[in-house]
Design a protein around this nucleic acid. Structure first.
Lengths: 275, 275
DNA sequence: AAATAGCACTGATGCAGGTCAATTTTATAA
DNA sequence: TTATAAAATTGACCTGCATCAGTGCTATTT
């Protein structure tokens, strides 16, 4: 039942059972000084609003690679924004099958699927050392009632998640294996670009198996496709290090279909977070 | 560019181009007298709050079978609640491929994916003669700031849509054809049951092709599976009329995996809407 | 530096579901 | 009612990806 409990000031973070002895409390985390604020929930807030928004950041959490932020079935209390690092979320079938439902990086909000039942609907696991802002949801709702911009941003982010999911459904339901992988790579490229990183060279945070799970393929198929893409000069692969050498060909393969919607302020803002 | 324009009191409904000459305006549609209020956005509102909520129902729309409520790419102005009938939503790839992303019935809210970009992300088409409540989104946000229950309901509904999408992703990504169809049938059965209809006998509103599109299968496969399920005494099929004869076997086939989350007030409320 | 485990690659083979095609049934229109 | 189109069924065949299996990497750990 490990999850991140953010109900009071002496909040303690439990990883997946191993770090129960590393409590922490940091109140210096505030939106108005966060480099991610142009990509995160408080987009467009005035400075004084930013300060108020900061009050809902009760704490932030540090997760080491492999640690779990929350687990399906545990109580939902807060939304989480990724400050550094990345996580995967996985959905579980009742027969135990597990599937990667999302790969979340810096500036993205996770935990939205827990609002409905007050219980998390998936597992969230750090894919590398990761830092998270914790936003208690009741506070967020209260604040959203007072700050229309914040309210609207929350709605936009939830709506964006729905659009993203629809794109994944399209991918899983009607694309062939090579189209899926091409779409995945183009999407990663775009998202790194949006965050000020190279759009052509990056390191995958997921294993072949996790990528396969996300794309509805087996790891062998993913591996074979990476090899074929390399043969065809679309990419260069060295384990998890990817260098894209022909992004146009990848885009063509992917049917120009974006895994994430390409419009809207949470998607196409192309900026450097390092100011 | 046909879509439902709900920006003022003299709102006119355009179907898919054919009904431009049938404007309408109905102000008698109010939440406090609606039979769907226990399943729809205003769940849990007090009577006086219900009356206020009714003010955001600018109008409602009637669609004949096949008519389009909104089209991907057209401006988003409102959310829509299904009062009678049903609709499908379809997402489009840039290469023209189209896939059914949702089947929506009475009491459900659609259009949520448009909030993000202020533009509809999918097509919504009536599968039968259908009636819709129009809720201008700016009004809804304003009212949500004043009525915490309404605000929370909206968040729950959006969250529920995210959970539903995750279930579909799981279905598309890791279930075999027969599991998909079984899951689909069990889900329909549950949803009809929740709405006070028979859980064992109903008429499909979608063609084999549309069902296949939703489930990531070809119509021939859907047709063959219906035949096999009938051979195996799980169902009786007569065109689009379905009679479920062994729901337990179907549930087992589906891995007890629900297409829609089975918890939360928007899903498991089992009641009769006909009071 | 060596040992060990997790991850990745690649070949051989099989099969679930797609594709193509022909027929029947069911809707819709005249 | 008949005519016509749309939807559904069923069979024969094919293929893209899964499965199974063996080997080679590349990280940790000691």
């Amino acid at each position: 039942m490990s999850h991140l409990n953010a109900s009071n000031d002496t909040t303690t973070c439990y990883g997946d059972g191993t770090c129960a002895d590393s409590p922490f409390l940091q109140r210096d985390v505030q939106c108005n000084i966060c480099g991610m604020r142009r990509l995160c929930l408080p987009v467009g807030l005035t400075n004084s609003e930013l300060v108020r928004a900061g009050t809902l950041l009760d704490t932030h959490a540090k997760l080491r690679k492999g640690e779990m932020l929350y687990r399906a079935g545990t109580p939902f209390t807060a939304l989480y924004a990724v400050r550094f690092g990345s996580l995967k979320t996985t959905v579980l079938a009742e027969d135990g099958r597990e599937q990667v439902a999302g790969y979340h990086m810096l500036g993205e909000l996770i935990g939205l699927d827990g609002i409905c039942t007050k219980t998390h609907g998936c597992n969230a696991v750090a894919l590398e050392d990761t830092e998270i802002c914790v936003m208690p949801f009741d506070m967020l709702e209260r604040l959203a009632r007072e700050l229309p911009t914040l309210q609207h941003n929350l709605h936009q982010i939830m709506s964006n998640e729905i659009m993203r999911d629809h794109s994944v459904m399209l991918l899983l339901g009607s694309m062939r294996a090579e189209e899926r992988l091409a779409t995945f790579l183009v999407n990663l490229s775009d998202r790194y670009w949006q965050r000020g990183y190279s759009s052509t060279e990056f390191v995958l945070r997921m294993t072949r198996e996790e990528i396969g799970s996300y794309l509805g393929l087996k790891l062998e198929t993913v591996s074979r496709l990476f090899s074929r893409f390399q043969e065809d000069q679309l990419i260069h692969v060295q384990g998890r290090a990817i260098k894209i050498t022909n992004i146009d060909a990848l885009r063509t393969l992917s049917g120009h279909q974006q895994l994430t919607a390409s419009r809207g302020k949470y998607n196409n803002s192309h900026f450097s977070p390092h100011e």
